[in-house]
């Protein structure tokens, strides 16, 4: 069973076609990167997979569940971290994680387990008890990454996970993701940071103006286009 299957996905916003029939698959346990410039359609695709937006036409299946018809089942399998996500500012980091854990646990012990895992992943020390409005951007992002991973999702969807973060925090976040995947979780991430993609992803799809222009492993694509890095691959594909 594939973690994600997208077949001829089209999404229109009024007269504007954001996705022009894209298709790709993500295998279980791999980190798959959706790579492209701004306004390429990455976020729209991720929002559809996360059941936030409806498809205009085409099929999207997460672990064989249709994202439109079986949205509730899909939501139990996934965890989505939007690009500019925030947390509730009047809650403490701990309260925020507790709030999220409440939706994924059946009893108090389970909730406590998830919460402890979240606190460990966030690694904010005593500051986890402080209100979110006192956090720096990096601290908030760490909290949100912890939120996305602590619930043991089968598919993690990360939209620009390190966008706007400094080098050190970005490196830290990438480390958390890389370690987490060792447990067998599937990750779908979008990024326009080609170095990040090279470091994290097992396979990538290059997207431009709502179309998938190339799919493959980072190494395979570099060899195919005789490029030194993914950036060069991307430029060659859109020429």
């Amino acid at each position: 069973m594939k973690a994600l299957e997208i077949n001829n996905l089209i999404k229109d916003y009024g007269n504007f076609r954001a996705l022009k029939g894209i298709s790709f698959e993500v295998n279980q346990g791999e980190i798959f990167g959706l790579i492209g410039p701004n306004a390429a359609g990455k976020t729209t695709a991720l929002r559809i997979i996360s059941t936030l937006l409806r498809v205009t036409s085409g099929n999207v299946k997460v672990f064989d569940y249709d994202v439109v018809k079986e949205a509730s089942e899909v939501r139990r399998k996934i965890s989505y971290l939007p690009e500019e996500a925030g947390a509730y500012k009047n809650l403490s980091g701990k309260n925020y994680l507790e709030f999220i854990a409440g939706f994924y646990s059946e009893n108090g012990n389970e909730k406590k387990e998830l919460l402890n895992k979240g606190i460990e992943l966030a690694n904010l020390g005593e500051k986890i008890k402080n209100k979110v409005n006192t956090y720096s951007k990096g601290m908030t992002r760490r909290l949100l990454v912890a939120r996305a991973l602590m619930i043991n999702p089968e598919l993690v969807i990360l939209d620009e996970p390190t966008s706007g973060l400094d080098v050190i925090i970005s490196q830290e976040v990438r480390g958390i993701i890389k370690d987490f995947v060792k447990q067998g979780t599937t990750v779908l991430l979008s990024s326009h940071n080609m170095l990040e993609v090279d470091f994290l992803c097992d396979r990538i799809a290059l997207i431009n103006k709502g179309e998938i222009v190339e799919t493959g492993t980072p190494q395979g694509l570099k060899e195919k286009y005789k490029a030194n890095n993914i950036e060069e691959v991307f430029i060659n594909t859109i020429k």
Binding site: S79, Y80, L81, P82, A85, G86, Y88, K89
Partner: peptide
């Protein structure tokens, strides 16, 4: 404003 709506809507909640 706080960009929390998207997360809320992807939670397994009716």
């Amino acid at each position: 404003e706080n960009k929390t709506l998207e997360t809320l809507l992807t939670l397994p909640v009716k």
